[in-house]
Amino acid sequence: MAAEGGSAIDPIHQFNIVEYGAVDLFGRHFAFTNSALYMLLGVGLIALVMIYGSRSSALVPGRMQTLAEMAYQFVAGMVRSSAGEAGMKFFPMVFSLFMFILILNIIGLIPYTFTVTSHIIVTVCLALIVFLTVLVVGFAKNGLGFFNLFLPSGVPWWTLPLVVPIEIISFLSRPISHSVRLFANMLAGHITLKVFGGFVVMLLGAGGWAIISPLPFVFIVGLMALELLVAFLQAYVFAMLTCMYINDALHPGH
């Protein structure tokens, strides 16, 4: 790991945070890093498609406007179907979350790039945004009635001592599962790709074994397709769960 040559097949190396410049403020170390660069790149790309693409407000859309409209309709449909018309108040949030995760997942699949969503601190932030929104909206809209969330209707009263703690634990573990799901999927996918990439390199350098080096390469091609699906699916799952949690906040009695 210490050797520069070792990084070629070190599957963890790709997650390293690289600093381009830093300041120390309030006793903390703030740096402009590769992660920050890719976040800004992702936001810039989204803004390019969504704002530059819709600049002409054409009745018959061009390519980029079609893309922007597709993204809009897709997320709007998701929010409407799972959180109802009242949930459309949170559409900009769900849309931002979905696009942010999607674009950063996909950028991360390009070789030599950095995957922002493979760092748990980022996915925890994303999940906490949702969790805190649900808490604030839930109590603001329903007051103490939000605790009805822990009292499922139609359950026999004598099971409540068991059901209520389970519901509370499942509610509190939401931000954990919400963030770890995305983080772990991205991390594992990239490590797998890197490990199989390393196999190709190692086999090529192993004399006669070089003859089977195309095998892991073919495997990587398939894996890449799968990771592309996962990149979309994780963004979709994250946004979908966000919608369902918001629906819980709006209508706690389920």
């Binding site: 945070i17 600093e19 830093a22 170390h29 703030f30 740096a31 402009f32 890093t33 992660s35 920050a36 976040m39 800004l40 992702g42 936001v43 989204i46 803004a47 969504m50 704002i51 900009p92 949030m93 849309f95 931002s96 696009m99 942010f100 760092h119 601190i121 980022v122 932030c125 994303l126 945004i129």
Partner: peptide, 17 residues
């Protein structure tokens, strides 16, 4: 660093969107 830039980037994205 990641927190800072996440807040800046995501905040900007949310506002723009």
């Amino acid at each position: 660093s990641q927190l800072l830039w996440f807040v800046l980037a995501f905040g900007a994205l949310y506002l723009l969107m």
